[in-house]
């Protein structure tokens, strides 16, 4: 790898642009895609690999190419700058997620409570609109307050977000789904809302609840059976 290629890889990551580095295993020849000039088939294989977010060797014209996907960090949008959010931000940070905390309540959503974390003090629907959750974004609503949670969940459901969850009892989940149905979401959409969010690990403390939420996000992202809700 040339220093220039290494530099380009880092630049793509800083710009949050997914790229793939194709390496011909026979001689180490490399091309960065999209953008670089590649032999026929290699660019298509790279586009496909980026789409699946999966690095692998492909055989093209009798040559082996390793397509290495470099995708931007997975994003976690936390709605509600509450105590559990502080623990969740810490855990997600350790796992390499890019975190955004959304809460218009300034005393909660402070730099002191979330040092070094990106924060938005907009109303959740505006914040979610601006953030544009994609297939590499998880959205969790933690406020317990329908005024804040509902607009966030409503916008998340209108996006291709990979994971949507909300804290609260089964009863409040049922009430929440009824309210979201009134906003026009059908059964298929409502089934995307994981509530109460988190794997059942008997979590009690705020960090434990954060761990259970993080565990469910990982389970869904990695296609584990634990991420499938019945």
């Amino acid at each position: 790898m040339t220093p220039a290629t290494l530099h380009a890889l880092r630049a793509a990551r800083d710009a949050e642009r997914p790229v793939a580095l194709a390496t011909r295993l026979a001689d180490g020849a490399q091309v960065l895609l999209p953008g670089g000039t590649a032999p026929p088939g290699v660019a298509d294989a790279a586009a496909d690999a980026i789409d699946r977010d999966e690095s692998a060797v492909v055989e093209l014209d009798g040559q082996s190419w390793f397509i290495h996907v470099h995708a931007p960090a997975y994003r976690l949008v936390i709605v509600g700058a509450v105590h559990i959010a502080q623990a969740l931000a810490g855990l997600a940070g350790a796992l390499g997620y890019r975190i955004v905390v959304v809460d218009p309540r300034r005393p909660f959503n402070s730099a002191e409570r979330f040092p070094g974390v990106e924060r938005m003090q907009d109303w959740p629907d505006q914040a979610l609109e601006a953030l544009g959750p994609d297939r590499r974004t998880a959205v969790v609503a933690l406020t317990h307050d329908p005024k804040l949670d509902d607009p966030a969940l409503d916008r998340a459901l209108r996006s291709p977000a990979a994971f949507i969850g909300a804290l609260g009892s089964r009863r409040s989940q049922a009430a929440r789904l009824a309210r979201l149905a009134e906003l026009g979401h059908d059964a298929a959409a409502l089934a995307r809302v994981r509530g109460p969010v988190g794997l059942p690990i008997g979590a009690v403390s705020a960090p434990e609840i954060a761990l259970s939420i993080m565990a469910e996000i990982v389970a869904v992202r990695r296609h584990s059976a634990l991420g499938v809700r019945g």
Partner: peptide
């Protein structure tokens, strides 16, 4: 895919 494994930064730093 390799979120926490910031090997590119390490590689750059050590290369420098």
């Amino acid at each position: 895919m390799t979120d926490t494994e910031d090997m590119l930064t390490t590689a750059s730093d050590w290369f420098e």
